[in-house]
């Protein structure tokens, strides 16, 4: 494609090569990982990797609005939790046979529940995003946090679906020809979904729409002077982002076979933000590395001491204070090639 363009942006070329190389390495690691885990006698690693992959989907979705469009949403866990609840509620009805909204709804098929979760999360993101986008800056951070908290309280109060205690999903949603109950199979499913989602995001980011989002991050005033009404673009980005989070939530509900309001606790939103920042916001693969880094670190610390947060907290503070751009910033600092 680059050959047909009269003026391809030259600087992106080596960067592209490097990121493709990184992508290839990452995929190889992810494909080998479950076998390696069995080989070294740590099969639980596959489950941990599944969790990371799922969270990486949610983090990448947040990255679209936070990293590319510069909208710091502190409520991402709400869409994630809603996606999970869609799976939980549909499962519950498929088991009990009770009508949902007076209709015989209920599903335990992944091919139904995943799209349903994506759509419902997207709808919620559309409504709340439309309101939250009336603000900007610090108000946007506060209001997304508050709205997510509101949704959290809603599910806490939703006694019909377990309230505080959440919902247990006895069996993972099924897929034709595949045994989703098998941990390894489920790992492959999540990995495939993640690869597809990242591929979609990479197209979006490189598209005209993505260019507008990056413009909005850098100077919203300039975008207006170009004749661009930014609100619609930000809203659509919020919806796509919410859909991705819903997708991740639906997978996580299947992975854990459990849904509870804790999934949309505000600290979960904070963790998503950290994944984006630590991995390098506004880069395609950053959130994946951020998710792996944060969850890996948490697991390591938790294995060491039950009071791991007392160490994680200050580490995160240090990461923000001294490595701008998270892991990639750290890597750049170590290489000594920091350009500013």
């Amino acid at each position: 494609m680059a050959e047909t363009a009269p003026n391809p942006t030259q600087r992106s070329k080596p960067k592209n090569v490097r990121s493709r190389l990184l992508l290839a390495q990452l995929l190889v690691i992810l494909v080998v990982l479950p076998y390696l885990a069995n080989l070294i006698g740590q099969p639980a690693l596959t489950s941990l990797a599944t969790r990371i992959i799922i969270l990486a989907i949610a983090a990448a979705s947040l990255n679209l609005i936070m990293g590319y469009a510069g909208l710091a949403s502190f409520g991402h866990a709400a869409w994630y939790g809603i996606g999970a609840y869609v799976v939980g509620i549909l499962y519950r009805h498929s088991v009990s046979g009770d009508p949902l909204f007076g209709l015989p709804l209920g599903a335990d098929q992944l091919l139904i529940t995943l799209p349903a979760a994506i759509i419902v999360a997207g709808l919620f993101a559309a409504v709340f995003g439309a309101l939250a986008l009336r603000t900007s800056g610090v108000q946007f951070i506060m209001i997304t946090l508050a709205f997510a908290q509101m949704i959290f309280f809603f599910f806490v109060a939703l006694k019909a679906y377990g309230g505080d205690d959440g919902l247990i999903i006895r069996r993972r949603n099924a897929l034709p020809f595949l045994d989703t109950r098998d941990g390894l199979t489920f790992y492959w499913i999540c990995l495939t979904v993640a690869v597809v989602w990242y591929a979609i995001l990479s197209r979006i980011v490189g598209s005209r729409f993505g260019r507008v989002l990056e413009g909005i991050r850098q100077s919203e005033r300039r975008m207006a002077a170009m004749g661009v009404r930014t609100y619609g673009y930000k809203l659509v980005a919020c919806i796509i982002s919410g859909m991705g989070a819903g997708l991740a939530g639906a997978l996580m509900a299947n992975h854990m076979r459990f849904v509870s309001p804790d999934m949309m606790h505000w600290t979960q939103s904070g963790e998503f933000m950290f994944m984006v920042i630590l991995g390098g916001s506004g880069t395609l693969l950053g959130p994946a590395f951020g998710a792996a880094g944060l969850i890996g670190l948490e697991s390591l610390l938790a294995a060491w001491t039950e009071n791991w947060q007392v160490i994680l907290g200050p580490l995160l503070v240090l990461a923000i204070l001294f490595t701008r751009g998270g892991l990639s910033g750290l890597a750049r600092m170590i290489r000594g090639g920091a350009r500013g």
Binding site: M1, A2, P8, R203, R208, F209, G210
Partner: peptide, 13 residues
């Protein structure tokens, strides 16, 4: 409008 999500913008002549 720029509600075009798929085609890459970088090489658009």
């Amino acid at each position: 409008h720029s509600f075009r999500f798929w085609k890459t913008a970088a090489g658009d002549a």
